[in-house]
């Protein structure tokens, strides 16, 4: 029993990582119907903006801040202007495929710079908490807290502010939104900038736990897609639910069912959800657009 509790709690901690990656993924989908197949790599990359600064002795907070700004510029603004805007008019699928190419591009780029795994310093180093007999590092708790805070902030922004209402209107029907005088383009840009900042924060929080390496985006990306779909693609809070569930299911599955098939269990869950509840566990049903 203690064992099961432990598996659940560590699973939640890992799941929070997936959730943090998945939030931006659902956000882009909601406001601009963009499927970012490179989302995992978006989280991999900012660590490599920050690491050289940290090695050069730049203070931690400043390195993270510059990393976030760079990420907003490159992975937010640049991604939107250079890739999404020109391709989006061709449809959802070409953009998804461009994301796959972007993923290769980013991974190979970082690999040519360094193929090593790097230690990334933690915000809160060497501190463990005991919760119901399980031991969780302070860093993992920080991930959970930040993920929750981000979702609450985003929910607030989307549901309670004018900008948020405008963003939602844009997401639901950009033509009508435009007619209503909403600066649609600016609204979409905001979500990309938010995603840019989110992935950089995720990168700084997650890299101490999984290390900084060119290939981490593969695992993170796959987990984030699964989390987003299981939780609900069109709800920011779905990403949290999906991520946490995924972390727990993964641990319990590999402990009690099969370690060889540990990766299969979330995939089966994904297939079942898509077949029987495509809107996700937390999502609203979306009208089928053809």
């Amino acid at each position: 029993m203690a064992n099961l509790v432990n598996l659940i709690i560590t699973g939640l901690a890992t799941g929070a990582i997936y959730a943090l990656v998945a939030i931006g993924f659902t956000l882009l989908w909601q406001t601009s119907q963009t499927i970012n197949f490179a989302q995992g790599d978006f989280v991999m990359l900012p660590a490599f903006f920050m690491l050289p600064m940290l090695h050069a002795g730049v203070p931690y907070w400043l390195a993270i801040l510059i990393g976030v700004i760079l990420s907003m510029l490159i992975l937010g603004y640049g991604y939107k202007k250079l890739l999404v805007d020109p391709i989006r008019k061709h449809g959802v699928l070409p953009l998804a495929i461009a994301g796959m190419a972007l993923s290769i591009f980013m991974q190979e780029g970082v690999k040519n710079y360094t193929a090593e795994a790097h230690v990334f310093p933690a915000l809160i180093p060497n501190l463990d908490f005991h919760i119901f007999g399980a031991v969780v590092s302070a860093q993992s708790i920080a991930v959970v807290v930040v993920a929750l805070a981000v979702v609450i902030a985003l929910q607030w922004l989307l549901n309670k502010t004018l900008v948020g209402h405008q963003m939602q209107a844009t997401a639901q029907n950009s033509t009508v939104a435009r007619l209503l005088g909403i600066p649609v383009e600016r609204m979409v840009l905001y979500t990309f900038l938010i995603n840019g900042a989110l992935v950089a924060i995720a990168s700084a929080l997650v890299s101490p736990l999984i290390f900084a390496k060119f290939s981490t985006g593969n695992i993170m990306g796959m987990a984030a897609f699964t989390a987003a779909i299981v939780g609900g693609f069109n709800q920011v809070r779905g990403a949290i639910a999906g991520g946490l569930l995924l972390g727990v299911v993964n641990n319990i599955g590999s402990a009690y069912i099969s370690a060889q098939y540990r990766d299969a269990i979330p995939l089966l869950l994904l297939i079942l959800v898509i077949l029987f509840r495509p809107q996700g566990l937390m999502g609203r049903a979306e009208e089928r657009t053809v």
Binding site: V92, Y261, I271, I274
Partner: peptide, 28 residues
């Protein structure tokens, strides 16, 4: 069959999951 129910990116993810499962079966 999933394609009868879902489209586009959902279908992409179902088939992606299928491909990942196939790899695990080949290996295990």
């Amino acid at each position: 069959y999933p394609a009868l129910r879902v489209q586009h990116h959902y279908l992409a993810f179902v088939t992606l999951a299928f491909a990942s499962l196939a790899f695990l079966i080949f290996r295990n």
